[in-house]
Amino acid sequence: MYETGEIDAATSRIYRLRVMHATESLERIATRAGVTPQEAAAAESRLAALGLLQPAPSGGWAAVSPETAADTLLAAAQREVLERQSAIAATRARLHALTGEYLEARSLRSDKGSIEIIEGIDSIRSVIDDLARHCSSSVDALIPGGGLDEAAISSATRLDRETLARGVRMRTLLQHSARKHPPTARYAAQISAAGARIRSTGVLPSRILIADNESAVLPVDPEDHAAGVVLVRDPAVLSFLRRLFEHHWDRGLEFTAEEQENGPEPTQLERDVLLLLAAGKKNDVIAHQLGISPRSVSRIVAHLMDRLGATSRFQAGVRAAMNGWIS
């Protein structure tokens, strides 16, 4: 099931080249590596057997990080009898020996100012997995929709816990409707307990993932996630995406256990703001009467209008009264 020979220099070169040039022909890869097409094909077959290359839907190969390949290749073996433990450890060590090659090649794959289109579900998963495994400071995510797929939750929970264990700050913003989806609510509770921050808001523009404030992933088509993603490293675009995230994050409500059960009911302070809002008071007057800053009032009003789906302060007051939030 597993190869026992060493990964030779030619195979290592082929792997490195496939990380950098996923869509190039076998002949071009062979020329770059200084080997024959037959030798290149044999090396690719060996890398595929080790899980380091996977067939891409559009043809060719999708390179996989050594850690991910090791996890996939060895998952079943780790449940087998003890006598296979030495073979498993040896295989993992050989795969991890390529990490340096992978990271160096990965750094050369695209320059820091690039915007890259990634197609194919395997390639998309590989890119997201790679960002999560190698981020060092922060992961911020906007996730629209009423709830997460249970299979996605299962795989994300393990990776999220590993990321948080490295001391990475993780912030995830869901939609309010996700609170009514039990698997998503349990997922939010689990990773919150592990150190993540989870909030929800009314409307989100698109699914966005930002890693270390240096790379971002967003869908080519927000209605069809399988259509491909855009991998962004361009500083100007990243700056806009970070501001977009912070704008929606500041409007979000903490995803607490009480809110999961009872829904995003207003706090007493929010009810007080609503009463004054319905009375036609301006933000400065509300701030003065409640003893808080005008900026805090602006943020609370924005939250409330978003949750009520209101386009004006008057409409917010009417809808709050209809919801029984004020009397």
Rank of each mutant, 00 (worst) to 15 (best):
R271Y: 00
A216K: 06
L47D: 13
I88A: 06
A42K: 09
V139Q: 14
R84C: 02
P66G: 07
V203Y: 02
R84H: 11
E24F: 13
A257S: 09
G120F: 04
P57C: 02
A105S: 15
S293W: 00
W249Y: 09
M170Y: 12
S110E: 12
R299I: 05
T11Y: 06
R307E: 03
H288R: 12
A227F: 09
R106T: 12
L304Q: 09
A178L: 04
H176Q: 05
T31D: 14
L103P: 01
V232D: 05
D160H: 11
L244D: 06
A236F: 08
G5S: 10
L95M: 03
M322D: 14
A310S: 15
A9F: 02
T267Y: 00
R166W: 05
R199Y: 02
Q85I: 05
V35Q: 08
S206E: 08
A93T: 11
E83Q: 10
D272G: 01
Q268D: 11
S65W: 05
E116I: 11
L304I: 12
R166E: 12
E101N: 03
T11V: 15
S293F: 00
S126W: 00
R84V: 03
S110G: 07
W249K: 04
A196S: 14
L241N: 00
Q38L: 11
L231N: 09
A156H: 12
L148M: 13
S177Y: 00
L108I: 10
V19D: 07
W61K: 00
V168R: 08
A70G: 15
L241D: 05
D71F: 00
A40M: 06
R161N: 10
V220R: 13
S327Y: 00
V35P: 07
S58I: 14
A63F: 03
L238V: 01
A321K: 15
Q78W: 15
I7Y: 02
W249F: 09
G202Q: 03
G324W: 04
R199E: 12
I124P: 11
A70M: 11
V127W: 05
S154H: 09
R161T: 09
D140N: 12
E116S: 13
I7D: 03
A188F: 01
F255P: 05
R169I: 03
A152T: 08
I88T: 14
V139C: 08
T91P: 06
L218S: 10
G145H: 01
L26E: 12
R171N: 14
V229D: 08
N262P: 00
V127I: 15
P183F: 03
V285Q: 07
A69P: 04
E246C: 04
N283R: 08
R319F: 04
E67C: 10
E116H: 13
Q54F: 00
L47T: 15
R271K: 14
W325T: 04
D122I: 06
G113D: 15
A287S: 09
T31M: 13
D212I: 04
Q78I: 02
G59I: 09
L98F: 06
